[in-house]
Write a protein that binds this DNA or RNA. Sequence first.
DNA 1: AAGCAATGGTTCTCTGTCATACCTTATGCC
DNA 2: GGCATAAGGTATGACAGAGAACCATTGCTT
Lengths: 262, 262
Amino acid sequence: MATRERADDTRPAAAATDAGAGEPDAATGPLDSVLRPVRAGNGFEEALEQVLQLLRLGLVPPGERLPSERELSQHLRISRVTLREVLKVLQDQNMVESRRGRYGGTFVLPRPAAPEGSGELRRRIAAVDVEDTLRFREVLEAGAAGLCAEGLTADAELRLRGALDATQGARLEDYRRQDTLLHLTLAELSGSRTLAARYAAVRATLNELLDCIPLLVRNLEHSQQQHAAVVEAVLDRDADAAREMMREHCGGTAALLRGFLA
Amino acid sequence: MATRERADDTRPAAAATDAGAGEPDAATGPLDSVLRPVRAGNGFEEALEQVLQLLRLGLVPPGERLPSERELSQHLRISRVTLREVLKVLQDQNMVESRRGRYGGTFVLPRPAAPEGSGELRRRIAAVDVEDTLRFREVLEAGAAGLCAEGLTADAELRLRGALDATQGARLEDYRRQDTLLHLTLAELSGSRTLAARYAAVRATLNELLDCIPLLVRNLEHSQQQHAAVVEAVLDRDADAAREMMREHCGGTAALLRGFLA
DNA sequence: AAGCAATGGTTCTCTGTCATACCTTATGCC
DNA sequence: GGCATAAGGTATGACAGAGAACCATTGCTT
């Protein structure tokens, strides 16, 4: 009985007012940078997104345990009930497994290789603005490398060297993870918490894209050389070189992705 | 009768587990970049923050009308009731004024010069990580300038020239606003929506800080020269120069702020 | 003067989320 | 073997927020 009828409120049709035209998501106006939805989705979806980040970044590798539900819910500032809904979804996707009892917890399962035909992959790509991701990533990475080189402390040197070494010795199936951790370390050492947080987010998206294309050993070796060059520049406190090297490094990945996803 | 007692759930004390230690906000661990609160504050506070951005960025200048309540609430994906609570706060602060009837709306009031003694200002600064803001800003600005120079279109050229001209001709009290718009334009033309959105956020914070220090004509002239140099580099499609100039420009503001707020 | 349209102002109900408390299971230590 | 402990699993009451529908005010158009 047509209860879908709009009564008085809600948008009348497409009558344009001064500022915002018709549909909320279209029309790249000047205000659109600010007037984004306050919470992307059901509130619980946002939490899901963050836990997914944790997995996609490999911050909790397969086989390891997530923080306990009580801890996670506190960190994310959501109730345990809501967090459990999130975990429920991940369990249904066979991404995590929960075990009860002391020393139990929620454990990360290894990814089941290729989930399906590439239909699934294509669908995920469609949901991402690839160009946006690649550009933003390059900006953050180059900036982080530069800042890192400028304000390098002894402690930072150590962490950076450690992260680089870890990538050098990584086995193939662990490479993506160590790579991510190296870049994440750089972002954290930039001295801007905001930068680190934004990088984590964009890197999670990037990793999702990278999962859609083959891992070429040829590229991997090249990457490693670039990693070494970037870290060297940072340790030399040569900010310009660090930025330049990092931009080149990102450009490589970007070209690869653009090629495969075009 | 000590109902504040924790029963079973909620954090036990400070018992450290593998991942997250004690208090949510302390301890800059590796997971902390991801495990941020899902919604900063009451949900309504987030909306307030965004509307404040609109004002602080000068996207809706004094005397102008905000989008209607129905539009705004749709853009922010909050109910009109909640949005009205936000506007209520702004009305109480004498920042906006609402008029009913057709062609009515919510109008931005001019700022009442200096609100109070500097106690208020100091308090606001305390809530901001100044170093974080300045560094992140520099990274985004330099990156945007570079990207902008690389992929410059004819339309972008026009918008950029227009924005620069507007700053040149701006009166003193309108300078901050035109300056913001110029930088915002650059961010939008970077081709990364995410970058533009993040820049808008950080710029709003920056403007708040800038409101705490005097506006020196001497610096303003210098700024203008730098603006011209940046835009020139971009129009020349010289990405390296654009980044370099922009970094210098940001460095100037940063030094000024660090000096005054130290 | 009458009517229409676009806006702010108000009220209602219903759903999602939170906080809290408690139960159940598994492990290590005594 | 028994107990303490730390984890997941469950149930409940209160409340904030969304959505829809209304009312009230104003100014333009006819």
